[in-house]
Design a protein around this nucleic acid. Structure first.
Lengths: 173, 173
DNA sequence: CTTGAATGTTATGAATCATAGCAATATTGA
DNA sequence: TCAATATTGCTATGATTCATAACATTCAAG
């Protein structure tokens, strides 16, 4: 499965000796770095059958008991309409409790299970994050770029899959 | 349209005085920063009716004349199947030329129009990027976090819209 | 030559995300 | 007070993004 073995030489390792004039773009580095961390976090949270968004919402509700759906959405940049199935799913799983506070607003809070899940999420996120922070040991100012490139490489992407990290079609930059 | 005016006081400016335990997460900062830059780049490239991916592909083909579709896809982390409509669209617009090199592979290269478009893309990207690099003037090591937060804030997001930058549902972290 | 891999392609479904609209309620201000 | 407006949760819906599977053709290797 190792391509440097398959092709007997070590010259065209990355892709096809392709010129890369976009990795110097800050936005592109950010995108790749973000994608790398997202993939890692997604894999980590999959262990407790939770997506990154859901974990984030659990953390947010845990830190803001009684907050309402709309505020969460505004904070995360998620539209009201799309928040509905998100918190509904978490409520169905018994993680989030809704109690009307306003007639129109619902105050959200974590159930016991929800608090437990939130704790698990936070633990997994800590481990996940430390995996990447190790890469940024003693970095200085303009090393921001190099740091992002390092993150984009990622600590946990052997070549058992495709590239270093999944990338989206619509949002390359 | 300024909410600090609408509510007469300056206490609950951000959302609802909501606690924010996730902005300390590197992954979340990266995601938001990336989203902020993506939004800005998307708006910039819309001026020439091009999406960020398409601009990126133009740059990549320009720097690698004769490269094949698959290599581009691997480099960008885009699957073969999803590359097809992308380069097809650029070919239809007269920006990219395909010439069979292999019987199965197609060598891609920029047409004259394509080269012109690539130049425009690169110019717009330069301006776009400088908007953000101004924010990172003289930052040092652990200021990486602060820098990302700054980028996430963005230079060009007044509150005429929703949040500071669009955020995805599936990929929060 | 035969097997296996790669490339471009199509078709298709899942997931993400935005838009529009609605009913109920709250807020504002004349 | 009360009418206009805004907010909240919600539904429905379409567009876009993305992954999977399969296929025909062509190349590479044994």
């Amino acid at each position: 499965m190792n391509n440097s073995v398959m092709m007997m030489a070590m010259d065209q390792d990355p892709i096809k000796m392709l010129q890369d004039p976009i990795s110097s773009r800050l936005g592109y580095l950010l995108r790749r770095a973000s994608a790398a961390m997202m993939a890692d976090l997604g894999a980590a949270l999959a262990e407790i059958d939770l997506r990154p968004v859901e974990g984030t919402i659990l953390i947010l509700v845990g830190a803001n008991p009684g907050c309402i759906q709309s505020d969460l959405g505004r904070m995360l940049g998620i539209k009201r309409a799309n928040m509905v199935p998100l918190v509904s799913a978490l409520a169905t799983r018994g993680y989030i409790e809704k109690s009307p506070v306003d007639g129109r607003s619902l105050a959200l809070s974590l159930t016991a299970q929800g608090e437990q899940a939130r704790l698990a999420v936070e633990t997994l996120m800590d481990v996940h994050e430390s995996r990447f922070e190790r890469l940024l040991a003693g970095r200085d100012e303009s090393a921001l770029r190099r740091a992002l490139a390092l993150i984009a490489e990622g600590p946990c992407f052997d070549d058992t899959e495709g590239g270093p990290a999944p990338m989206s079609v619509g949002d390359l930059g």
